[in-house]
């Protein structure tokens, strides 16, 4: 009997739909870091990102039989996560995020900086995070999600288009609109105290 760990995503999904009890967990372990990165950036809040991820994996678990195999399994999973986040963003409208939630994100990110031995100026980075989060909060959701995928996470426009099931041009225009809306609130970050910190970070993640 072959090990589930050697199977492709698609084989795992099929096995799961057929009743296999391990396949889905393997699939999740394979993709969870990546999907977490998506969720936590869209939600800008670890608690809500965690909830969205749980929502998403549960729907994926149940919808596996509906997967048609036209898309990559990972694209499909991204789509489900993005949709779960979108649902939560919509609901958030009536319950604006509290400062505490934002601080959690900052603290966690700071801890990560410390772990990775970074010597960045935490104060300015924290300020950047807060400003970015606030600015994203005011964007229409579709622009926010497109910018999260393309600018924050460095997905190719085509990949973002596949995830969101829209044309590439739509992704581009959502990003363009989003960037022009963000410009006023982010322009002052243009010359941060440590400009090299910013430039050194962007390289791999920003294809445009």
């Amino acid at each position: 009997m072959e090990s589930v760990h050697e199977l492709t995503d698609r084989e795992l999904l099929t096995k799961h739909a057929e009743g296999d009890e391990q396949a889905f967990a393997v699939l999740v372990r394979r993709h969870r870091e990546r999907l977490w990165a998506v969720a936590v950036r869209i939600m800008a809040d670890p608690e809500e990102a965690s909830d969205a991820l749980q929502d998403a994996f549960l729907s994926a678990f149940r919808a596996a039989g509906r997967f048609r195999g036209e898309a990559q399994v990972s694209t499909w999973m991204h789509r489900i996560v993005v949709n779960a986040c979108h649902d939560r963003l919509r609901r958030r409208k009536v319950r604006p995020s509290t400062p505490t939630e934002g601080e959690t994100l900052d603290v966690m990110a700071n801890e990560q900086d410390v772990r990775s031995g970074s010597t960045h100026d935490h104060a300015s980075r924290t300020e950047t995070r807060i400003v970015v989060r606030q600015a994203l909060e005011d964007l229409p959701h579709d622009q926010r999600i497109a910018l999260t995928l393309v600018d924050m996470l460095g997905y190719r426009v085509e990949d973002a288009a596949a995830i969101l099931e829209v044309a590439s041009g739509t992704i581009k225009s959502r990003c363009a609109r989003g960037r022009s809306k963000l410009l006023p609130s982010l322009a002052h970050l243009r010359n941060p105290p440590h400009p090299r910190d910013v430039t050194s970070e962007r390289g791999g993640a920003n294809p445009s």
Binding site: A25, R32, F57, L105, V132, L189, S208
Partner: peptide
């Protein structure tokens, strides 16, 4: 400035998957 917006967004850090969230996902799937 517009391309700087993309750079600021790309540079905004976010936490890695916390172990307790990973555990919660495992439990939920089980």
């Amino acid at each position: 400035e517009l391309s700087n917006v993309s750079q600021v967004l790309a540079a905004a850090p976010a936490p890695e998957l916390p172990p307790d969230v990973a555990d919660r996902l495992e439990q939920q799937i089980a």
